[in-house]
Design a protein around this nucleic acid. Structure first.
Lengths: 122, 122
DNA sequence: ATACAGCTTAGATATCTGTCAAATTAGAGT
DNA sequence: ACTCTAATTTGACAGATATCTAAGCTGTAT
């Protein structure tokens, strides 16, 4: 009975969970909220810059220069990412530091990849 | 030299690629385009319904009833998903059938999970 | 042919969103 | 106290978006 054993394995490893089981209304609303925060070129790059930055965090002053945008605009995008739970921030003296919240990113990952149960940090 | 061997492994398996290396401007723009298509509760559910439907495809007539929206609105959302390359469609007689394009979904998956090189179908 | 059902397109509208300039807050260092 | 720098908030505005109604298109069946 090799077939019976093969199917369950495929069931776990194949295909994005998103397209394996219909998403509920509530789930969809919540996920859309987070995806919407991510679905912007500037915010994608901001998140990426913050996450990839040395120490896993970045000061706003290190982010503004990268873009051809004013400080208020960057601040706005950071706020959107923050309210979506994708990043968090803390003021330390003169500067404000931002870092990525792994849990929220992993929730999105769970849409595309099965079995990501307890992913590691960062 | 166990450390030298361990680091490269972590480098491959840990953390979303998105937050490991800064995203380029072009990449970010392209990804944002696809994410924006996905970042809507109705479209998330549509994609999920289509993908999870028997045979991997669904007729529009099977989708409209699920939502409290008019047919033109559903049609609009399907068009957005289609133009993002997330789904494709074909008319067969009276009905139009939609199915998920795995390649595009996998490109998104690659943001969150490393090493997803050649993922399987659907 | 005519009518009907499935689906899309076109046009209209209210809401949301990205951006900037100006004003505001918060801390550091004279 | 004052000033300078870092960052956010506010207000305004142009452009995008989600939704609807009405109209159009494309097959099937009578």
């Amino acid at each position: 009975m090799p077939i019976q054993k093969q199917l369950p394995v495929l069931d776990q490893e194949c295909c994005a969970p998103l397209v394996r089981q219909p998403l509920g209304t509530g789930e969809a609303a919540e996920l859309a909220r987070v995806l919407k925060a991510l679905a912007d070129p500037v915010r994608l790059r901001l998140l990426s810059l913050i996450g990839a930055h040395e120490g896993g965090e970045a000061c706003v002053c290190e982010l503004t220069g990268v873009f051809d945008l004013t400080a208020p605009t960057i601040s706005h995008h950071l706020k959107v990412l923050r309210e979506a739970g994708l990043i968090d921030a803390e003021r330390r003296g003169t500067w404000v530091y931002y870092w990525v919240v792994p849990v929220t990113l992993n929730r999105l990952a769970g849409l595309f990849v099965p079995d990501l149960a307890a992913s590691s940090s960062r």
